[in-house]
C-alpha cells in the first residue's frame, strides 16, 4: 500500500493527537514537545515529520529554535472527519432513490 499523507492519517495515532492538542494551546519547539512523552526524541521527531507532511503543522524558524505551529484550517478538516462517511452514504442513498423510482414505475406499467 502506498504511503498516504492526509489529515486522517495524522490523527490515527494517539501520540500525534496529543502533540496536536499541545500545539493548539501554544507553539512549542521539539524539545518542549518531547519532554511530555516517554518515547525517544527521534520517535517524536518522526511524528512531527508526519504531522508536517500532512500539512497540520508548520515549522517556524526563530533564531536557533524551530517552533511547531498548528495550521487551524487543516485542523477543521479533522473536526469534520465524518465527511467521507457522509459522502459515501449520500451517494448510496441517491442511487437507492433512483432505483426505488424505477421500481415503482415498473410496477405501475
Amino acid at each position: 500500500m502506498e504511503t498516504r499523507r492526509d489529515v486522517f492519517q495524522a490523527i490515527a495515532d494517539p501520540t500525534r493527537r496529543d502533540i496536536l492538542n499541545m500545539l493548539t494551546q501554544k507553539s512549542l519547539n521539539l524539545n518542549a514537545i518531547a519532554e511530555n512523552f516517554e518515547m525517544s526524541r527521534p520517535a517524536i521527531s518522526q511524528h512531527i515529520k508526519i504531522l508536517t507532511e500532512c500539512g497540520l503543522i508548520v515549522i517556524d524558524q526563530k533564531g536557533r529554535e524551530r517552533y511547531c505551529q498548528v495550521q487551524p484550517e487543516k485542523l477543521s478538516a479533522v473536526a469534520d472527519w465524518l465527511e467521507p462517511f457522509r459522502k459515501m452514504w449520500e451517494n448510496r442513498f441517491n442511487q437507492l432513490d433512483n432505483l426505488l423510482t424505477q421500481l415503482k414505475e415498473d410496477k405501475d406499467e
Binding site: 498516504r4 492526509d6 486522517f8 492519517q9 490523527i11 490515527a12 472527519w81 465524518l82 465527511e83 467521507p84 462517511f85 459522502k87 459515501m88 449520500e90 451517494n91 441517491n94 442511487q95 432513490d97 433512483n98
Partner: peptide, 23 residues
C-alpha cells in the same frame, strides 16, 4: 472507528464524481 475513517477518506476521493446529475 479511526481505521474506518482513514479508509473512508480514500473512498471520499473515489467518489469525486457523484451521480448528482443523474439524480
Amino acid at each position: 472507528l479511526e481505521a474506518m475513517v482513514n479508509m473512508g477518506f480514500q473512498e471520499g476521493f473515489a467518489m469525486a464524481h457523484d451521480n448528482l446529475d443523474e439524480l
